[in-house]
Design a protein around this nucleic acid. Sequence first.
RNA 1: GCCGACUUAGCUUAGUUGGCAGAGCAACUCAUUCGUAAUGAGUAGGUCGUAGGUUCGACUCCUAUAGUCGGCACCA
Length: 644
Amino acid sequence: MELILKDGKKIEVENGKNGHDVALSIAESLAKNSIAYKLNDKLYDLYRPISGDGAFELITKESPEAFHILNHSAAHLMAEAISLLFKGAKFGVGPAIEDGFYYDVDLNGYVLKEEDLKKIESKMKELSKKNEYIIREDVSKEKALELFKDDEYKEELIKELDPNEEISVYKQGSYLDLCLGPHVPSTSFVKFFKLDTIAGAYWRGDSKNKQLTRIYGIACFSKEELERREQLKEEAKKRDHRKIGKELGLFMMSEYGPGFPFFLPNGLMLRRQIENWWYKIHDEYNYKLIKTPIILSKELWLTSGHWDHYKENMYTTKIDERDFAIKPMNCPGAILVYNSELHSYHDLPLRLGELGLVHRHEASGALNGLFRVRCFTQDDAHIFCTREQLKGEIETLLGLYDKIYSVFGLDYSIVLSTKPEKDYIGDDEIWAESEAILADACKASGHDFKINPGDGAFYGPKLDFKLKDCMGRIWQCGTIQLDMNLPERFDCTYINSKGEKERPIMLHRAILGSFERFIGIITEHFAGAFPIWCAPVQIKVLPVNSQVHGKFANELVSKLKENGFRVEIDDSEEKLGYRLRNSVIKKIPYILVIGDKEVETGNVTYRKYGTEKQINVSLDDFIKMIKEEIDSKALLVDPKNLKL
RNA sequence: GCCGACUUAGCUUAGUUGGCAGAGCAACUCAUUCGUAAUGAGUAGGUCGUAGGUUCGACUCCUAUAGUCGGCACCA
């Protein structure tokens, strides 16, 4: 049989071993819009039909799609192994995911152990060696219900399918699964894999349902690829902000305050640099900066609607017999500031910025280092403007976001979330108009964006900013949200040019999101090797012999401090190599070694983090260089090329 | 909150069927005074997360509880 590829190339299917099955499988694939494959020495080249006329294109094994198909088949292989090892096991769903696959299984109350994963893996290897063909079959709904009558989960899924459509099932050996496909042609494709974690997961993702046992794994086309992915995980572990935070003395947690982080001297120094810079930029962008109280009365939260909609997540208290709540958001405070005086259209846009400390009672199981905490500081702002000013405001904001993210070398993408299907407030017309304004502002400032239909908040559409760190992980940090709710509830107004009261447009926006989380993200992004402008300690001075060079070294420290640098000296009576190592481990940007040579000439010898070169320059040149590096907010090292 | 795992010195950790809790790093002391990733010797440091229980005897087994971690759900 001959396959025609997209580029016109033809491929002959050889009549080798199992030639019949191969032809059968390809014929099926053609008919069912599934995948076909090439039978020769490279068994794992996958093809997909690009039209109904038998043309195929190559999906290289490097492509995400091939990886996806392989992992989906690995999920089936695992399910087959489980069905053989655990009689009566029932199966939920088992899809491929971005970095592997999982299957949700019901083992009748049996608690799966780590050792069981090994057993399942061995069974999978055995089945892989058997090289069972993965055959697709289309059956009627009745037939499908009959086939899966012993599995209530599959049954439930089948019942929801269109009775007039045929239902596809995939079979390999004794194992049969309800599945859309596609799959690799036979089990031997799934050769390099690993099962890594066992977790609980609600059936159909609903916490009202029973929890099934979810087993996660990963499959690759080669041993090397599998090892590479394992290594990436190892690297991520080394960058873990909880580990680095401890090593560098950035922050700590205490069992006396689960989810409430403590900032340690180094962590606070880092944070102060970012805060100072944030304040400075917001002054430049004509924000009015405020600080509003953490505790405010119940009535305020009733007016804002938080008491009714968000009460479970709010910390409440009583003061002098009156109910209060600790703010979970800064908006009402900012609105009180806005409403504290009468505004004219000349005042707008009014940008009220606040580094606001909020508390939210997050579920205990949601807590995660600095990524998910119960108290955090949002880099918040509430912008009050007229309808006409909206587009310009958004464009300015997009420029501001660019400026801030680029300092950290973080790429980002924008997602526009639009009107929910139901339970939203505001006129459809205003929704449409503001969605268009958000989209236009992105386009006008040259930003691509994706649309997430129906994912807007009930009170307005929003732009979300997804940051990508050096390991390719995505973090949602920034957001710009239009709010049609609170200005109404709090009766915010301004006097327009005709002397009439008018309702301003209100935007919520945060760039970093929360300081805590953002510091967690950049700690992992930089693996603790922060750019010199925000590094807790910028320079470490090491006298070769503290008795001989200590005095000179201390004078040098004073001079550097006078220049505003964050400097420490290590004049302990240890060998230079030992003290040098300690400074490198702490990821201090510059190490100055002071010995006879330096004392004589007055020059300094520095070693920059990430290099081993010793560079001798005059003190003035060194100071000038560091100042430039701080002012330009240069990265210390390429975060991707760090030796960890 | 739910499922599961984990919790041993400041940190990283060993501890085999229940029988005196062991190490490396850090700290401290002494010697060493040294030019780019760990000088050597010694000292001290533990109610084995917490509270109960079983047992002649519990770090080890059981129950409860707290915290952490991996997921799920949540993130108006």
